[in-house]
Design a protein around this nucleic acid. Structure first.
Length: 509
RNA sequence: GCCGCGUUGGUCAAGGGGUUAAGACGUCUCCCUUUCACGGAGAAAUCACGGGUUCGAAUCCCGUACGUGGUACCA
C-alpha cells in the first residue's frame, strides 16, 4: 500500500443554452486556476441534457471563449480523453442503468404522474403560506408512482409505454451534513427537500443524476459551481451515498454569486447600464437578439481574466494586477469569499486601461487594427500604426478608444470643435497661422523639433504666447481637445497633410 | 411561506479579540501639462441593527433586519 500523489481533476460543465456571462466565466476561471495550481487536469463536460434548450452554435461559442481567454483544456468533446464521451446527450444509456440501480435498492421510484396531474397537485396543495408545494415524502404517498401502485400495475403501465420519470426517495427525517471548501460545514434536513426527478421521461438524466454519475466516472476530485447549487447539494450527497461511491465523492466548493447594480446580474443589466455581461458577443439564432461581449467592447482577455479573478478572491496582498500565470501560482481556494460581489464596470475599465498600458505595441497591433477597420480607417502601414499605438496607448481605456486617439493620424478629422478656437480667435492669430503654413512649406527638415522651433520663433516675432496658439493648432490637426503633443502629431502626419489641415480650418473660420 | 447562503466606505476588499480599521476603483481638491490622458500629493466616506460573552468586540455567541439563491421532467 502506498499513497498516490494528489492528482486533481476539475471539470467545468457549461450548458449550451446561450452566451457565457460573468458568473459563468468566473466559475470556469476558478476551476481552471485551481486545476493548474495543483498541476492537475482540466476537463470540459457539456451539459446538453435538455435538448429543447439547446441552442445552435452555443457549444462552439464556449470553445471560442476558452480560446480567446487562452485557457487550455485537457479533455473535452474536442480534445478526446480517456473518459469520454463528454456530451451528456452521448452518454444517455449510462444514466438509465444507474437510475434503475437506485430503484432496485429502494432509493428511487418510478413516477407516472402527467404534467397535468402535477399541476393539479400543486394547485390543490397551494396555500397562502406555501405558494410552491413540493413533491416530497408527504405528497408522494398520494401520487401515481411505484411506491403506491402494485408490482403488476407498474408492469402494466410499463408495457403500455406510459411515460414515467425516476425520482429519488428522500428520507423523511435525517440531517445531512457536508463540508464545503469555501463555507465550511453545511447541513440540511432531508424531509424539507423534495423528491427530485433523476431521469426524465425522454430518458435523459437531469443535472442531479448526470453530475454525480459523470463526476464519478470521470474521476473528478474537486467540483466548483455557483452558489445557486447549494440547495440541491443534499440530493447529490445522497446519490453518492446510495450509489455506493461516497468515499470517492469530490470536494465541493460553492462560489458566491456576481450581482449587478440591482440584484442578480442579468444580460438585461447590460443593455440597461451600458456594459457587457457576456464574454464575447452572442447572437441568439432564435431571437436574433445580440448581447454585447467584453471582447467586442474592447477588453483585453488578460484584463477580463484579471478583473474577474479579483471579484471574489485576492491573495491577501495589495497586488491587483495579475497575469494568468501569476493567478495560477497564487490562487488558493481558502481565499475565495463567501459573500457575493457586485460587479463594478468602472473598475473593470480600470483593469483594462492598466493592461493596455503594460501591453506592448507589437501585441496590441493586431487587436487594435480590427477596431480601426470597423471605423473605416484603412491601415496600410503597420509600422506607423505601431508607433502611434505606443504614443497614445496610455490614453486608451478600451481598445475601441484607439479609433479616436489614433484615427486622426490616418485620416483628416471629419468634425472640428471650432467653438474651442472661436472663443479666443483674433485676426492676429489668423495671420500667424497663414504665415506659419508658409514657413512649414519651406522647412527642409521635417522633425518635431524643427516644427516646434519654427512655431515658437514666429510666435515670438508676433508677440503672441505660444500656449495660446497651441490649442487652435491642436483642433486644426486632430479636430478636438485630445491626443498627444501637437508637434509630435504634425511630425507624424507629414508636411503636406499638416499644412492642408491648417488651411482647411482657416477657411472654415 | 419554507429552506440554504451571505452582510467591513458608493464598489472591490485587507484585517478574524486590543489597529490612528490597509489598499484599489469611483468622487472631490491641488501639482505636472496652456488639449486629453499618464504621473504625483491630498480630502471626504465604512465595520447592517439589537442583545450577550469579555477588562476589551469589526472580529466569538444569539436574535432581528436586509440582500441573495433554491423550492421545474432548467441548468
Amino acid at each position: 500500500m502506498y499513497l498516490c500523489p494528489m492528482s486533481v481533476r476539475v471539470r467545468f460543465a457549461p450548458s449550451p443554452t446561450g452566451g457565457l456571462h460573468l458568473g459563468g466565466v468566473r466559475t470556469l476561471l476558478y476551476n481552471y486556476l485551481f486545476a493548474r495550481h495543483h498541476g492537475g487536469q482540466f476537463i470540459l463536460r457539456i451539459e446538453d441534457t435538455d435538448q429543447s434548450r439547446f441552442v445552435q452554435g452555443a457549444e462552439e461559442y464556449i470553445f471560442d471563449c476558452l480560446k480567446w481567454l487562452g485557457l487550455e483544456i485537457d479533455e473535452s468533446p474536442y480534445h478526446e480523453g480517456d473518459y469520454g464521451p463528454y456530451r451528456q446527450s452521448e452518454r444517455k444509456p449510462l444514466y438509465r442503468e444507474y437510475a434503475d440501480q437506485l430503484v432496485q435498492a429502494g432509493h428511487a421510484y418510478y413516477a407516472f404522474d402527467t404534467p397535468e396531474e402535477l399541476e393539479k397537485m400543486r394547485e390543490a396543495n397551494k396555500t397562502e403560506e406555501n405558494p410552491s408545494p413540493q413533491y416530497d415524502h408527504r405528497i408522494r404517498k398520494k401520487m401515481r408512482n411505484s411506491l403506491n401502485l402494485t408490482g403488476s400495475e407498474v408492469d402494466a403501465l410499463m408495457k403500455e409505454n406510459t411515460p414515467f420519470v425516476i425520482r429519488i426517495k428522500m428520507p423523511e427525517n435525517e440531517i445531512l451534513s457536508f463540508r464545503d471548501e469555501i463555507r465550511g460545514d453545511i447541513s440540511f434536513e432531508t424531509g424539507l427537500v423534495d423528491d427530485k426527478v433523476l431521469l426524465k421521461a425522454d430518458g435523459m438524466p437531469t443535472y442531479h443524476l448526470a453530475v454525480v454519475v459523470d463526476d464519478y466516472l470521470m474521476k473528478i476530485t474537486h467540483a466548483f459551481r455557483g452558489e445557486e447549487w447549494l440547495p440541491s447539494a443534499p440530493v447529490h450527497l445522497l446519490l453518492w451515498r446510495y450509489l455506493g461511491w461516497e468515499n470517492q465523492m469530490p470536494k465541493w466548493a460553492h462560489l458566491p454569486l456576481i450581482l449587478g447594480p440591482s440584484g442578480k446580474l442579468s444580460k438585461r443589466d447590460g443593455a440597461k447600464y451600458g456594459f457587457p455581461v457576456y464574454a464575447m458577443n452572442w447572437a441568439d439564432p432564435r431571437t436574433e437578439e445580440l448581447t454585447e461581449g467584453f471582447r467586442e467592447k474592447g477588453f483585453l482577455p488578460e484584463a477580463f481574466i484579471n478583473m474577474l479573478a479579483m471579484l471574489g478572491w485576492n491573495n491577501g496582498t495589495e497586488q491587483e494586477l495579475f497575469s494568468l500565470d501569476e493567478l495560477i501560482q497564487s490562487f488558493e481556494l481558502e481565499r475565495v469569499h463567501r459573500g457575493s460581489a457586485k460587479f463594478d464596470y468602472e473598475k473593470a475599465r480600470w483593469f483594462n486601461q492598466e493592461w493596455i498600458k503594460k501591453t506592448s505595441a507589437d501585441h496590441l497591433l493586431p487587436l487594435v487594427k480590427p477596431f480601426m477597420t470597423k471605423s473605416e480607417i484603412n491601415i496600410e502601414d503597420d509600422k506607423k500604426l505601431k508607433t502611434i499605438i505606443e504614443l497614445v496607448k496610455e490614453r486608451c481605456v478600451l481598445l475601441s478608444d484607439f479609433v479616436q486617439q489614433a484615427g486622426f493620424f490616418f485620416r483628416a478629422p471629419v468634425e472640428y470643435d471650432l467653438s474651442a478656437i472661436q472663443a479666443k480667435w483674433t485676426p492676429e492669430k489668423k495671420d500667424f497661422f497663414q504665415h506659419f503654413c508658409l514657413r512649414l512649406n519651406n522647412l527642409e527638415e521635417w522633425t518635431l523639433q524643427k516644427i516646434e522651433a519654427s512655431f515658437k520663433e514666429l510666435a515670438e516675432a508676433r508677440s503672441i504666447k505660444p500656449g495660446e496658439l497651441q490649442l487652435p493648432m491642436r483642433i486644426m490637426l486632430v479636430g478636438g481637445k485630445f491626443g498627444p503633443a501637437v508637434f509630435e502629431i504634425a511630425g507624424l502626419i507629414g508636411k503636406e497633410e499638416t499644412v492642408r489641415r491648417i488651411e482647411n480650418v482657416l477657411s472654415l473660420l
